[in-house]
Nucleic acid binder design. Structure first.
Length: 261
DNA sequence: GCACACACGGCTACTACCGA
DNA sequence: TCGGTAGTAGCCGTGTGTGC
């Protein structure tokens, strides 16, 4: 049973001629993905209203904008609480830090209770901080703290993916991690987050585009991320709580070594 | 022990990006 | 310009832990 179908694409809404209050035909695209197929204009009552994309972010009130050539509208406020929240969901997600037992609801509770401000704060939580939360017993608290501690050391590509850089998903994160490893040729030397910052800051937009599979859009996105002061402060905070510390190793003919990306 | 809440995993389509 | 592919998003069934 499909209970809801969402449509975020303004162009698609215009193409369908969809208005608020319309009756629509919903299909199943594939197995479960709900798909708005057509609008039943014959069933209109006259009470329908045209849809307009909000001009302001419903959470922080800042202007929302649409980049040229893109479908998505984004809030321009880099400190938007909703973006921060979504960034945290992404940070702990499966392909990123993969923190077992930490989902959106618990993140919401931690943020709402002021127990965390950003992802780095997660690593300083104690069991006692969690027990007062609703539906959080001692076992849950212990499991979650253990899960967070276990994930202090993750692969470099997972770490880069977790940062939530626009257009940098699992694959591009892997490409970047290989590039960082290539730049940092000193084997068995501990690589810290701040080393990564230095390496990435040294790249110009053009340099980034020379990396295979990295085009202008992705390069621009990576460049801007590593030149944003807020992101650098976040990296410093992650470094302080002990995230990272990668040792780049290679597989040589004589020694069987593990590759840490 | 049961009902409930939440997280996870798997699936698929659409959109955007990249390289040839 | 086009084909291949990565990134993103939402749904549902299932498993786990909590509170009563």
């Amino acid at each position: 049973t499909v209970s809801r179908a969402t449509l975020h694409n303004e162009d698609e809404i215009k193409r369908l001629g969809l208005q608020i209050g319309d009756t629509v035909v919903v299909g199943r695209a594939g197995d479960v993905i709900p798909d708005v197929r057509t609008v039943l204009k014959d069933l209109r009552t006259g009470k329908e209203k045209p849809f307009h994309m909000p001009k302001k972010c419903p959470v922080c009130g800042f202007v929302v904008g649409r980049a040229e050539g893109e479908v998505a509208y984004r809030c321009v406020n880099k400190n938007c609480p909703a973006q921060k929240r979504e960034g945290l969901y992404h940070f702990v997600s499966r392909k990123a830090f993969d923190i077992d037992g930490l989902g959106p609801k618990i993140i919401d509770a931690l943020l709402d209770q002021g127990l965390i401000q950003d992802a780095a704060d997660l690593f300083e939580l104690q069991e006692g901080d969690l027990v007062p939360l609703e539906r959080f017993g001692e076992k849950s608290a212990k499991n979650l703290i253990d899960a967070i501690r276990e994930r202090k050391q993750i692969t470099l590509s997972r770490f880069l993916y977790a940062l939530g850089i626009l257009h940098v998903g699992e694959e591009n994160a892997h490409i970047l991690s290989r590039e960082i490893a290539r730049k940092n040729r000193i084997m068995n030397h501990e690589l810290r987050i701040m080393d990564i910052e230095k390496i990435m800051k040294a790249y110009s937009r053009e340099d980034l585009q020379t990396i295979p599979d990295i085009g202008p859009k992705v390069a621009e996105s990576i460049f801007l991320w590593f030149h944003d002061k807020r992101n650098i402060i976040f990296l410093e905070k992650l470094d302080k709580v002990g995230i990272g510390r990668w040792v780049l190793m290679c597989r040589s003919r004589f020694q069987k070594r593990q590759i840490m990306w």
